[in-house]
Nucleic acid binder design. Structure first.
Lengths: 248, 248
DNA sequence: ACCGTTCCTTGACCCAGGTCAAAAATCACG
DNA sequence: CGTGATTTTTGACCTGGGTCAAGGAACGGT
């Protein structure tokens, strides 16, 4: 666990895996070069806390590889995940000095960071960045609202099915690997993290996953790898309109 | 109910009550004048649906007066409110052709609308608008995330206390009326709408309000008017850090 | 003042999911 | 491959909030 994989990965924006999805997606070559000048990479190990809620935040940045979570915690320890950060997702809020949520690395991650001040200045001069950030924020708001429906109105079984469906969709959006036939998805979360995401207990998560497996909606290989023989069946179990599925 | 109060209220942006909080907040006089040229007002009566989810949306706009809600509905009728639109809040998403949620007028409302196309064009040329919209969207995202904690982890009693606290805070932010002493707040929502907001049934909402009254946390005058003798007590019941309250 | 409608309250009962407890599976590491 | 730590599964039981049902209270129209 304590392996020091802190080698810096100096990288050119040109071969960046998230070049076309992150805040910089719309930037012209010259703008990109300026960003290139103020960026630096940071690595975090699985389980590490990137930022504590309430801490001063002197940077913003993008997840380049790996998965992180945004969570809120009440005084008595109840926790709710409020965001799942996949590659290209943005962390931090320009114009805000203190973190509003805990950010935790769920897997080993690499982040592309910018010191807040220079980034804000650059944003003021570069509409392409602000435009892209607005677009991404609107997408996140939509995702948050969909999640409010899940949290407020769905049953435990529907919640699990919804989570698997969402992860499967995002995987598909990125990887575009072998369409047709059964999907295979890696759940990047522990049962406890899923529970925090879904407003459930980890016992209930476990029971409902077992139930979906028993009923043939999914099958498991190990604890984390899920096979989905029929995606529409899964959407049905999630209580979603079955037309909202993958692009055909 | 069918009184035709459809008189247009031609209004100058200069005396607009939401001039300094809406999308136009940052605009310079000349920019404001351009907006003025493409705006028009629409009124809706309490209970009227402004937009149905899935409908083509050819305008965006701001709530000027009154209250509206954003809700999502599942096929079987389960409903979740995902936004509460108060004066100055923005409706619609630039770049999106179809509404993602139902928008319903909870009280009589006046909206300041812009046809989508001209507004988008103007946004591209006017960074002040895009900047303000980004800021507002980030605020909404924060609100949505706070709401995810409420939906996912709070008890029914805490949910009700949270809702009252939030409405009290927003009222205070706008009105800045008589600080000190017991707050008086009008709940702009029916019990059913509160239930849709909180992921509860209306019966549970009613019971919990009665319980908070019985325990002296609030008192009621009629069904909608709430008096809060001790705001910190209310925050406590909401499960919030009691320091997050009103500015002292 | 009466009626119909809408909104709200309260009671009785029940069940989905939480809690507590223990065992099983998996993994890291010597 | 054995040992301890971590994660997951499963069982037994309980409770918060949902469901169903019956009244009340408030309001607008005639």
């Amino acid at each position: 666990m304590l392996n020091e994989t802190n080698l810096e990965i100096p990288q050119d924006c040109g071969d960046c895996p998230i070049r076309h999805r992150a805040v910089c997606a719309r930037c012209e070559p010259d703008e990109l070069e300026m960003l290139d000048g103020i960026k630096y990479y940071r690595r975090f190990q699985a389980g590490q806390t990137v930022i504590w809620s309430g801490d001063r935040m002197d940077f913003v940045g993008s997840v380049v590889t790996g998965i992180a979570t945004l969570t809120q915690t009440m005084e008595d320890g109840r926790r709710q995940m409020v965001g799942l950060l996949l590659p290209s997702d943005f962390v931090g809020r320009p114009g805000r000095a203190f973190a509003a949520y805990d950010v935790v690395a769920t897997s080993d991650i690499v982040m592309c960071c910018f010191r807040k001040k220079p980034f804000e200045e650059m944003m003021a001069r570069t509409p392409h960045i602000a435009q892209r950030l607005l677009e991404m924020t609107l997408d996140e708001l939509d995702a948050a609202r969909e999640w409010m429906l899940v949290l407020g109105r769905k049953t435990a079984r529907e919640k699990i099915a919804s989570l698997i469906a969402i992860i499967a969709r995002r995987d598909a959006a990125i990887g575009m690997k072998g369409r047709r036939g059964p999907l295979v998805v890696d759940l990047p979360l522990t049962r406890e993290a899923m529970a925090d995401y879904l407003g459930l207990t980890l016992e209930t998560v476990s029971r409902q996953i077992s139930a979906l497996k028993r009923d043939g909606v999914i099958s498991l290989e190990g604890k984390r790898r899920v096979t989905i023989p029929d995606f529409n069946r899964l959407l049905d179990e999630a209580g979603d309109d079955s037309d909202g599925g993958l692009p055909a």
